[in-house]
């Protein structure tokens, strides 16, 4: 231990190893410093491949599970998610990074892994208003910094705003465009749905939470 070079080398190697080093703050700090230093040497990150580029109608048809293309608009992130669960009309989708979203008849009722998640929601009124418009209530559960559920109530109105033929990977759908406008005491948002005559929402833009903003999805 008297050799200074050995000491320095030993310390540099000690970003910590072994399971028990994981929670040690100083080891985490050294890992961060070493990570930053190696980032300076090798700053070329591999080019991001977009999910869009890899995807084709043939690939979609070949998939053993249903797929959903999801964008988190404020994060400028997009990915393809696979169906991983079904509870009645609730369908849960997730990607390999374990971000999860759940839609009930196409309406968002839960997210997991976004940091400001929707823990659960009541969208029964919103679903009824999709058939021909109308007023309804929405209830949304969020989790706060003290692990408590905060429920927000929204007053909403849905109206038909037009028709459109949309194309999703070579397939076209004849859809009605519906817009749902919601407000609470200090929040408001506007969701847009592209719905076909079988009541399937093929494409939509829906509000998640104040911090995350909106998602967009296409059913593939």
């Amino acid at each position: 231990m008297r050799n200074l070079a050995l000491k320095i080398a030993l310390f540099a190697a000690l970003a910590g190893c072994g399971e028990l080093s994981e929670g040690v703050p100083l080891a985490q700090l050294s890992r961060g410093i070493i990570g930053a230093a190696s980032g300076l040497i090798d700053s070329d990150t591999p080019a991001q491949t977009t999910a869009n580029a890899e995807l084709s109608r043939a690939a979609i048809e070949a998939s053993p599970t249903n797929l959903l293309r999801l964008s988190i608009i404020s994060l400028e992130a997009t990915d393809v998610l696979a169906e991983i669960g079904r509870n009645g009309n609730d369908v849960t989708w997730a990607n390999s990074a374990s971000i999860g979203v759940t839609f009930q008849n196409g309406l968002l009722i839960a997210t997991r892994g976004l940091g400001f998640d929707v823990m659960g929601a009541d969208v029964k009124g919103a679903y009824r208003s999709l058939s021909g418009g109308g007023n309804h209530m929405r209830k949304v559960d969020f989790l706060d910094g003290l692990d408590q559920i905060q429920q927000l109530d929204f007053q909403c109105q849905t109206a038909v705003i037009g028709r459109d033929v949309i194309v999703i990977y070579e397939r076209s759908y004849d859809t009605t465009i519906l817009e749902e406008t919601c407000s609470s005491t200090d929040l408001e948002f506007k969701n847009t749905y592209w719905r076909d005559r079988n009541d399937v929402i093929w494409q939509s833009r829906q509000w998640i939470s104040p911090e995350i903003g909106y998602l967009g999805y296409q059913l593939l």
Binding site: I73, L75, E76, T78, D79, L187, W207, G213
Partner: peptide, 22 residues
């Protein structure tokens, strides 16, 4: 294939962030 990747385009231009009023 299941990776979050990044894009820019008309969608991001449509971004609207709503914040709680002060």
């Amino acid at each position: 294939m299941f990776r979050f990747s990044y894009f820019t385009g008309p969608t991001s231009a449509a971004l609207v962030l709503l914040c709680a009023t002060s």
